[in-house]
Design a protein around this nucleic acid. Sequence first.
DNA 1: CCTTTTACATACACCCTTGTATGGATGACG
DNA 2: CGTCATCCATACAAGGGTGTATGTAAAAGG
Lengths: 207, 207
Amino acid sequence: MARRTKAEAAATREALLDAAEEVFLEKGVARTSLEQIARHADMTRGALYWHFRNKADLFQAMLQRVRMPFQELVEEIGDPSVTERPLEAIRLACLKGFERLEQPRYRRVHAILIHHCEVFGDIDPLAMQNEMAEEACGALIDYCGCAARLGHLRPGLDPEVAGELLQAMLGGLFHDWLRNHERFSILERGTLLLDTQLELMRAPASG
Amino acid sequence: MARRTKAEAAATREALLDAAEEVFLEKGVARTSLEQIARHADMTRGALYWHFRNKADLFQAMLQRVRMPFQELVEEIGDPSVTERPLEAIRLACLKGFERLEQPRYRRVHAILIHHCEVFGDIDPLAMQNEMAEEACGALIDYCGCAARLGHLRPGLDPEVAGELLQAMLGGLFHDWLRNHERFSILERGTLLLDTQLELMRAPASG
DNA sequence: CCTTTTACATACACCCTTGTATGGATGACG
DNA sequence: CGTCATCCATACAAGGGTGTATGTAAAAGG
């Protein structure tokens, strides 16, 4: 075998990550050996151990490709006026998130993180999920607080509870869909449920 | 070592299941060997292989101790008049569920099923979660449909969407809490969120 | 063009785990 | 009270996975 050029080496790395996604999703992280991943990418463990220190390192690199914090989604909307309509900001950011999740890579990696891996090595998936949940919930509560101050929230509805409600609902939908994505479209049902929920929480006809 | 009496043997079996719960929860199902479980129960693998065929069999027996279908919770309310107040039936059944989840055994086993195990052997935890979700969601939609026919639901709110909304919210809360139960009380926050959500979905003051 | 480094493939040693086979002591039972 | 099935411990064989060490041919770089 010959040494590859830098571009080929980078491609090898990506191929290994792609292979890891597929095998992890199919057989679970714990039950897949590095040998299986390497073979699935038409490589050997030698290549894998050159690009990554071990399975945990490979796993983290895999996650690195699909980071998607809530605040980033809000900024991606590109409309500065959404600050004045916080509930709409939530809505558009979630729609952005749904769209991303329909991309195979995002869906697969998140499904692995949520449903197909346990603690191993120095990796704690639950801690990562906690971080994601905290970040999202915090942002949602902030936006709900903002909405409350602007009078956009139904009177009597505590903004913190509203944020937690949204986070719980979105998280539940997220988990359900990732369990088997063929049951329904996250974009369709997500839009329907989110719009319904926001409508329930919105202040009635502010004539 | 001497042979035990039947009662002692049954106690051994329970002790092995208890040990499995604790070790599974701490280290994950895949990363725990049968040796570790046996030692944690002050036994050897011999005892384990006598009571269970393998890890999958042990796992299923562990789940068997905490079955909790939604319909069973409704029946446990013991008030036949709840049929006339479906939203109240949902509320009381969920409260029953919250209370059960605060028992260590129920909490631990569900946490293992949701967050600490992958597919292994002929066991597919996701299929089990799917069954649980389907059962709960179906029941919730039924009750919401009943509520709609009785005019208890906010006009314009599709009962199927209402059921899915409840299931997503409860599921999200469930997952969040099982991730680390020390953050909040499932009974307290669950009651708060559920009451808030039901209030949002309820038909306004039917004077 | 020569040297060095890169990007892998191959080979090796080690440990952990599983399943089963065997042993043995005693409760259950007639 | 003797026999048998039970309940569990111990021993054994086998396989699979990990990490590392070594080999190597070509790309990088001067």
